[in-house]
Amino acid sequence: MPLMRIQLDSDRQTARRVVELHRTGKVHRESRDAARAEVWRRGRTPAGETVFVGTTNGEPVRLIYDVEVYRDVTA
């Protein structure tokens, strides 16, 4: 299955919280759901779990997620 990389704008405090949750094996549901919603918005269908990859160092800080998507099928 192909992966779609999603970057979500965030603030430093939220990004730190997401990273800490990830390190303890937990999930930040709001950002995970936002990444899945972005996949839908772009016209693709999520096929698997949304995986937290990390954060950017720039301003604004961005949360990075990889989402498995179904291949486009045309008839």
Rank of each mutant, 00 (worst) to 15 (best):
M1A: 13
P2M: 03
L3C: 05
L3I: 08
Q7N: 09
Q7A: 11
L8H: 05
S10W: 00
D11T: 10
D11G: 11
Q13R: 11
A15Q: 02
A15I: 00
A15G: 04
V18H: 03
E20L: 13
L21E: 13
H22F: 09
G25K: 10
V27A: 14
H28G: 06
R29T: 05
R29S: 09
S31Q: 03
A34Y: 02
A34T: 04
A34K: 12
A34Q: 11
A35Q: 10
A35N: 06
A35C: 15
R36L: 15
A37S: 10
E38D: 09
E38S: 14
R41V: 02
G43M: 07
G43N: 08
R44G: 02
P46D: 01
P46T: 03
G48Y: 03
E49Y: 07
E49M: 10
V51P: 01
V51N: 06
V51W: 01
F52Y: 10
V53Q: 13
T55C: 07
T55W: 00
N57D: 11
G58P: 03
V61W: 00
V61M: 01
R62Q: 14
R62G: 04
R62H: 12
R62F: 01
L63R: 08
I64A: 02
Y65V: 00
D66K: 13
V67D: 00
V67N: 02
E68K: 05
E68V: 02
E68I: 00
Y70M: 13
R71C: 05
V73Y: 14
A75S: 12
A75D: 15
